[in-house]
Each structure stands twice: as structure tokens, then as C-alpha cells.
């Protein structure tokens, strides 16, 4: 049992957890942030993707203790001032989700992908970059569209701001 503290969605959290506690279980069970899902046990499906210090990681493949002292963002932390993140909005507008189970991981992967590639993001890159996120419902067609649409909007916004 160890005391750990980290920042989750901008909030400082402290907890005593067993050392073997996975980050995903800590988020789901201790913090009741159940948007982060577990879809496999071999680190492949990506339903558990969160951001660790700004980078997408699989929260099922790290201990909560490894994340101590870090800044974590989950799907619950993406909205700002009650407004959906452009990626969230794009998934809805382009029907990028069906059952919704892989969706939080998809959205977290998408925001990370857009941050890394910026305006250079094209369809082939999106498909390659989604290697670590499995969806069984959509055939990915509309997920790819959603991500490209969000990327275009976010890059457009950035350009306008510059």
C-alpha cells in the first residue's frame, strides 16, 4: 500500500492504493472516472488511452504508482468551460462512434495525434496512427473522417490566432 498523488484533469488527488494497482483501475475505481475503459489485457485495444504529461499512453499498462507526480488527462477532462473539445464535437458530427466503448480512447488518441502532426495530418497517417486503437462498430471510416475534420478545424483556429 502506498500513498500516491498526481494531478488528474487539473485536480490534485491523493490516495492510498496497493502498489499493483493499474492506473486505469485507479482512475475507474478510486476516482470514479469510468470514461476510461478496459477492452483487452494485452495492451492493444486502446480503450484505456489517457494523457500522461501531455502524451497518449495506455493506462492499462502502467501502475498508478508510475504515474505519481504526473499530470493526467482523461476523456472527462477534455471539455473546457462546458464546451466540447473540437475532437469530441467532430466525433458526434461525423458519427465517429456507435457503441461508445472505444470512443474515449479514440478521442484521447486523436487529440494526441493532432497535437503531434498538426496540419500535416492526412488520411493515411490517421489510419497508421490508429494502430493502437481497436473499434468493432464503425469500420473506422467515420472515425478517420472525424479526426481529419477536427484537425482541420483546430489547425484553422490556430492559424487564425497566429
Amino acid at each position: 500500500m502506498a500513498g500516491i498523488s498526481m494531478r488528474v484533469n487539473g485536480r490534485e488527488v491523493d490516495a492510498d492504493v496497493e502498489d499493483r494497482t493499474l492506473l486505469v483501475d485507479f482512475l475507474r475505481n478510486n476516482l470514479v472516472l469510468t470514461g476510461t475503459h478496459v477492452g483487452c489485457d494485452t495492451s492493444q485495444c486502446g480503450a484505456c488511452v489517457v494523457h500522461l504529461d501531455g502524451k497518449a499512453v495506455k493506462s492499462c499498462t502502467m501502475l498508478a504508482a508510475q504515474a505519481a507526480g504526473s499530470d493526467i488527462t482523461t476523456v472527462e477532462g477534455l471539455m473546457s468551460d462546458g464546451e466540447l473539445h473540437p475532437v469530441q464535437r467532430a466525433f458526434r458530427e461525423h458519427h465517429g462512434l456507435q457503441c461508445g466503448f472505444c470512443t474515449p480512447g479514440m478521442i484521447m488518441a486523436a487529440t494526441d495525434m493532432i497535437a503531434r502532426h498538426g496540419a500535416a495530418l492526412d488520411e493515411a497517417t490517421v489510419r497508421t496512427e490508429l494502430e493502437g486503437n481497436i473499434c468493432r462498430c464503425t469500420g473506422y471510416h467515420n472515425i478517420v473522417r472525424s479526426i481529419l475534420a477536427a484537425a482541420a478545424e483546430m489547425n484553422g483556429t490556430q492559424q487564425a490566432a497566429e
Binding site: 495492451s43 492493444q44 486502446g46 488511452v49 500522461l52 502524451k55 497518449a56 499512453v57 495506455k58 499498462t61 502502467m62 488518441a109 494526441d112 495525434m113 503531434r116 496512427e129 494502430e131 493502437g132 486503437n133
Partner: peptide
């Protein structure tokens, strides 16, 4: 190697 999330860790 792996996927983007795996490569980050």
C-alpha cells in the same frame, strides 16, 4: 514499434 501510445512509454 508498437503504436503511438506504446512508443510514448
Amino acid at each position: 514499434i508498437g503504436d503511438p501510445h506504446v512508443r510514448h512509454m
